[in-house]
């Protein structure tokens, strides 16, 4: 069975939700420890939400130096699907695996709310099972989710179809309403919304499952 490794740093708090949501879809998932320098036998990696290393200095600034991140950078270069959710997105930008940066929300409010997203590209490991233009209701839960990049980087993202999901009604000041982006290789995706928190009707939405299914299908799972 294809297995997704979900990395746990000190301060991560969404790893078990993520594992549960993947298993509920029929995929395999296991927790990886940030202090290990190998990814073991996993087929894909999720860097989940939370406050890795307390978010000190900047979110992700210390986490990117955790021993496991060397293996993540190597795996990303080899084409392994790597997804960063919320704090995980911040970690991947700090690690240089994704362009841009996340800074404090415009309005300086921590926002915890369901948010409508629009799928902009299905050419990524986290959106391949969705449709362009599809609207998804998925919660956001962050203080530093304001996606920021230079005008040159934004032009590249647009030219390369790297903007994966956008917000319908910009909640945090993100440039070009960006909620998630992918790398040029399309195997590394980061987004601020939490699809694992929209994975069951009891949670208020199942719209996140199409993303998790995309990830599982990218590593050969029949889900």
């Amino acid at each position: 069975m294809a297995t997704v490794g979900v990395i746990r740093f000190p301060g991560t708090n969404c790893e078990f939700d993520t594992v549960e949501a993947i298993r509920a879809l029929g995929g395999g998932a296991e927790i990886l420890w940030h202090g290990d320098s190998s990814l073991g036998n996993v087929d894909a990696v999720v860097v989940p939400g939370g406050f890795a290393h307390g978010d000190y200095l900047r979110p992700g600034a210390i986490a990117r130096f955790s021993p496991i991140m060397g293996a993540v950078v190597d795996a990303a270069a080899d084409g392994m699907p790597i997804v960063g959710i919320c704090n995980g997105f911040q970690v991947l930008t700090e690690a240089g695996l994704l362009p841009g940066a996340l800074q404090k929300n415009a309005g300086l409010k921590f926002i915890n709310a369901f948010q409508t997203l629009r799928v902009e590209s299905t050419n990524s490991v986290f959106t391949s099972a969705a449709e362009v233009g599809q609207e998804l209701s998925i919660p956001i839960n962050h203080f530093e989710g304001n996606y920021t990049c230079s005008p040159e980087t934004l032009a590249e993202l647009q030219a390369n179809d790297q903007i994966v999901v956008t917000y319908v009604g910009n909640p945090n000041g993100s440039v070009a309403d960006i909620a998630g982006v992918c790398n040029v290789g399309r195997n590394v995706v980061g987004l601020m919304p939490h699809p694992e928190r929209a994975s069951h009707a009891l949670l208020g939405s199942e719209d996140g499952n199409v993303m998790l299914q995309s990830l599982l299908q990218s590593v050969g799972a029949n889900v």
Partner: peptide, 8 residues
């Protein structure tokens, strides 16, 4: 490498 994020 560490104290700043040179992107911003």
């Amino acid at each position: 490498k560490f104290l700043t994020n040179p992107v911003i």
